[in-house]
Write a protein that binds this DNA or RNA. Sequence first.
DNA 1: TTGTAAGCGTTATCAT
DNA 2: ATGATAACGCTTACAA
Lengths: 341, 341
Amino acid sequence: MSKVTIYDVAKRAGVSTATVSKVLNGTGRVGKETIARVERAVEELQYRPNLLASALKKKRTFTLGLLVPDVVNPFASLLIRAIEEVALSYNYSVLACSTDNKQEREEKLVDTLLSKRFDGIIIASSEFSSESAIQQLQRQDVRAVFVDRVVTDSPYPVFATDHYLGSYLVTEHLIQLGHRKLAVFLEPLYLRSSLERLRGFSAALEAYGIAQNSFQVYSGGFGADAGYALAQQILQREDLPTAIVATTDLIAVGVLQKLHEVGIVVPRDMSLVGYDDIPLAGMAAPPLTTVAQPVIEMSKLVVAALLSEEAQEITTTLLPPKLVVRNSTAAPESYVVAERE
Amino acid sequence: MSKVTIYDVAKRAGVSTATVSKVLNGTGRVGKETIARVERAVEELQYRPNLLASALKKKRTFTLGLLVPDVVNPFASLLIRAIEEVALSYNYSVLACSTDNKQEREEKLVDTLLSKRFDGIIIASSEFSSESAIQQLQRQDVRAVFVDRVVTDSPYPVFATDHYLGSYLVTEHLIQLGHRKLAVFLEPLYLRSSLERLRGFSAALEAYGIAQNSFQVYSGGFGADAGYALAQQILQREDLPTAIVATTDLIAVGVLQKLHEVGIVVPRDMSLVGYDDIPLAGMAAPPLTTVAQPVIEMSKLVVAALLSEEAQEITTTLLPPKLVVRNSTAAPESYVVAERE
DNA sequence: TTGTAAGCGTTATCAT
DNA sequence: ATGATAACGCTTACAA
């Protein structure tokens, strides 16, 4: 630990600690000359204020806690980075933790964050376990917000992408390309975000008067493994869809891998879209058509909400996603052929 | 901020704060009954000790700082997660920051971490800017370690994968498959890790008596973009190599994309290997042969080194990488076959 | 076994 | 414009 304290600086500058504190914080009036002396002492001593002591007194740690399912998840990384950037502009740091969607773990982490007295907590973890976490938070009074997880009756502000809309847009894109036989691959259905995505998918079909069959929806786990497995499953069918809406880029990549294995070429033989627009999406072969979440915008709102002086309004803010068209989508072959005739 | 303090607990339990502290920390002798009373009070009041105050007194924050180039980079994520896990087992949190390999930014971040009095700082950022960061650290006395970046004359322990060996292994794998015309794609050459990888590549060729030409080595930026560009560059050549050693999975993915575009099939027409074994490597089409870094093992050593009671030994520890053979490599004969039209 | 009280390094109030 | 000094919430000798 750094041994030099505000006392050392005060002594060296020949002033009181109060004065040093004032120049350091720019509070109160201090003579120009005094300021210079203090600053020189700080420099000479390589003094770094102890933020622990400062925080204890000021009740501000300049740190935000962030809960995500897994920092390794590309979308989580994207979110972490965006929040980190915005926080930095406020002179804040952010400590991100992986909950693994495990309730016990989440509770333990919330406990820690609470003890460390962070100035705000951002929950971007699954809504699955948030129930108890919410209770924990409410008993202490910390600012908190939920991100990208629609949670009903939340006592905290919620910021999320309009997944219904995103899903609608990307499905519509496929339909406009001529697809009529679509399937949707979802993350587990207990996630509200999955349901929203499903709703958007379904609404798009409805809007264009396309018949809907329940067997068009597939749902498994998370990640590429899930996509791979789901693809394997759908390949058993006699009548394959001409396009697949994967509601996660990771799932899409898994699908891509399976299709590649069995020699189905995307988008020639089948179209495929993802969701999230993680960096990987642009690097897939072929680059994935997907929907981008407004991560930066969302992060700005989130941090601002946490750090604002005013009382928090408990509202849900839905942000608009953006369709990103790349090369994994094309008109279905039959469609093209039909046009020619 | 939580209003309940140790005083409230003491009052409620009818004991002194000293006693409460003792039962909370398990230090000193306290009567069984008293313990029960205190614990009940803690529970009823939902008391969470203020770790700021505690840290101020004990000089331990139970938090580690971690500097990586970019949390979005998949390998960085892997490292962050591994360190997070190990730290958690010690009841520690880790705050990861992205330096963007920018010196100014790195210095600012180190400053912040220093002020927050973290118990240790892990530098996994580029050696490029570490010079000044090291100086900053040394003036304060914090524990620190370097990870995955070989830095000469480091005043701190360094833990890194033996990139020379990893590169050697994967190159040898290619040679044993029958490849004789190899190229290597590297990250910028001012990175010692790049040089080590190059050395391993070269040594393998040497060991097998394969002629080496300078134009076999290509070096550009980081990430898939770089790989894509490098691939584009090499495709201009008349005599293509039969295998490419990309010293990063991300670079390999970029290469894959370019090759895919021009219709070169991996590994039939050309073999390709990556490095790092990020999750993406296994999901590429085809899944990438690569070399895995012992991230978990490394993280264990790193955290242990930071948290150990004993004086730090300033040594460099090189950990062995592991060759992971998947489907992006094959004997070059097929390439010849493909040539005959 | 339990309590008193002096810090830990800041900031902020109130004098001067 | 500057300085004493009392907190902030906890830990830890040292007493009792």
